[in-house]
Nucleic acid binder design. Sequence first.
DNA 1: TCACGATTTGAACGCTCGTTTAAACTGGTG
DNA 2: CACCAGTTTAAACGAGCGTTCAAATCGTGA
Lengths: 213, 213
Amino acid sequence: MFLDVAKLAGGSDRRIEILKSAAAAFRRRGYHGASVDEIASALDMTKGNLYYYFQNKEEILFACHDYSLDVLLTLMEQVRAEESPPDDKLRKLILAFVHMLLDELQGTALTLDLQALSPLLLKRIIAKRDRFDRGLREIIQQGIESGLFRPGDAKLIGFAIMGAVNWITKWFDPAGPMSSEAIGRGFADYLVGGLFALPASYSAVSPGFNSNT
Amino acid sequence: MFLDVAKLAGGSDRRIEILKSAAAAFRRRGYHGASVDEIASALDMTKGNLYYYFQNKEEILFACHDYSLDVLLTLMEQVRAEESPPDDKLRKLILAFVHMLLDELQGTALTLDLQALSPLLLKRIIAKRDRFDRGLREIIQQGIESGLFRPGDAKLIGFAIMGAVNWITKWFDPAGPMSSEAIGRGFADYLVGGLFALPASYSAVSPGFNSNT
DNA sequence: TCACGATTTGAACGCTCGTTTAAACTGGTG
DNA sequence: CACCAGTTTAAACGAGCGTTCAAATCGTGA
């Protein structure tokens, strides 16, 4: 079920360790706010040593994004290959995304500063991100066209879902009362369940408000 | 209808200008990535001059957050005072939030680096943000308890909505084809429309998948 | 034990940036 | 014109950070 994340980054174990430490630091302090020394110290190594594995700080940020996106794209391919209705696909995607985000990627996916990358590297990351976005929109669009979901702008809905999910890292507390599974289920219930076509009585005009509190 | 934003920040016109320039810079490059000189240059002033209006860079970030939250809280109070069903309140809140975010606050609300603030200032901002979050949850909870919305975790749903909306600043292009009003409407349709209670046939088990593509 | 490539260290370098400060400028008032 | 508070400037400082590099250390096979 789970991906072999180590193989995706195309690097040694040490490179992966560095990426995880860097991702955590970038998430906490932002790209510019996190120092190279901070990333290295967390691994009990000197900052100079990082430059044996990466050319510079920017390459580390790039690798973080590239790594996360590879994980997400592999996930997307798995889901797309399935023979199931769009709501099932979407639900599975959200569940897995949340799990990846919180349990595997340490809360770091698309939250990291993109604009800190130079144009060339930025372009490559955006291209990958767009592949994921398009896959997501396709699933939503299929649901709408089949009549399972009510009409809507698939692109807008896709952005809304991505925003809701990525935002989790801003408030999630691993030591808090909510498990990543519970969050995934709650989000899937709301974000997928909210797409279904509604009977006529639920159209633009809201139904009678029956206050019984 | 619209708030007099200038009065909320409790400062001179020049302070407001600085805040807007700073907010734009912080959003583009992040707090640590944006230089004080960059903020000043955009206003044709020298960086030293900023220190006539603010004690230091951190105070500027704090004022940005404080200002945005005051705008949002005033909005929240307006909506709460209304006598209308929860879905209307929620819809109005989302529409106004998106409008504020994109047209007034230049894409900057809660996206700015919070953790760059020192503990004391951070505490004050979080307290204000929590007031907004609680207001949002109350509206959702009322909808659930009245049976208008289907059952769910109001806290989780609130986070999802805030995430979806705040994430807009990550992809919105003012020069793009989508107006802020269209985005607001699309988001409200999805995020509020997706909360309504569903008939029995729409429960956990998905209805028959009728592919007609 | 020796040799050699892979890995790590610690110090040093420049450069950027936040902040300070004294001096200069502005516009209005007596 | 002289005065003065409010505002702006230009230059300088000092600290922190990304990066480099020569030397030291490690691990392994002969």
